[in-house]
Design a protein around this nucleic acid. Structure first.
Length: 198
DNA sequence: GCGCTGATTCCCT
DNA sequence: GGGAATCAGCGCG
């Protein structure tokens, strides 16, 4: 019943890699929650040595899921009102933030949840994506390989652009943001980098 | 099209 | 009590 262009279900072992490897490998993968979702076009990696990461400074109650088994969902509330979805990676305290996807399945339901119809604005940002897919804190710690999640490997080669991460105040020079090159569904375009004068 | 600002909850200090 | 991996609406030009 695959009516979208996707590969086989992602192996659980995929998540035993380091966060940047997983972040890159998830570009082009298909993510569904209760049958609603699409193709991942933007991710960011975080790990325990990274001052921008919730795991920086060690395990706490809030970030405990980041220190748990790989391939599970780490979901937290940001700025008091939005939810953000991460995939826990192989190293303790590392995860991949899912920032944007291209809506493919259940678009009607996304439109209802978001209250807008422009497909480019349905899932282009971590908060928007969670609202469109109906994700909240009740799914924190849930395995991404089981219902209500479905994850499929990329259908083919995806041209990937790298850059600096967004919305953080420290660790801004770490180029751990990955995106499907020139996708109209990115939360923000990738800036032309490498021209910083002094 | 840009930038500023308010919204709102949880966790750590 | 303050800040946070964000979003949408507003005013301005």
């Amino acid at each position: 019943m695959t009516i979208f262009d996707a590969g086989p279900a992602l192996e659980e072992s995929f998540f035993q890699h380091k966060a940047p490897t997983i972040a890159r490998g998830l570009i082009g993968a298909t993510l569904l929650i209760n049958g609603v979702g699409g193709r991942i076009v933007e991710t960011e990696a975080y790990d325990i040595s990274d001052p921008a990461s919730h795991s920086f400074g060690g395990q706490k109650r809030r970030n405990a899921v980041m220190f748990g088994p790989p391939g599970h969902a780490y979901i937290y509330r940001i700025y008091g009102l939005h939810w953000c979805l991460n995939a826990v990676a192989g190293e303790a305290g590392s995860a991949v933030l899912i920032r944007a996807l291209e809506p493919l399945e259940g678009i009607g339901q996304m439109v209802v949840r978001r209250g807008i119809s422009d497909p480019r604005l349905l899932c282009s940002g971590p908060g928007r994506l969670c609202q469109a897919l109906g994700i909240d804190g009740s799914l924190n710690g849930a395995p991404l390989g089981d219902a209500p999640f479905q994850l499929f490997a990329p259908g083919g080669e995806s041209p990937i652009t790298e850059g600096r991460r967004i919305g953080i105040r420290v660790g801004v020079d770490t180029p751990w943001r990955f995106g499907l090159s020139n996708s109209p569904f990115l939360s923000r375009p990738f800036a032309a980098e490498g021209f910083a004068a002094g």
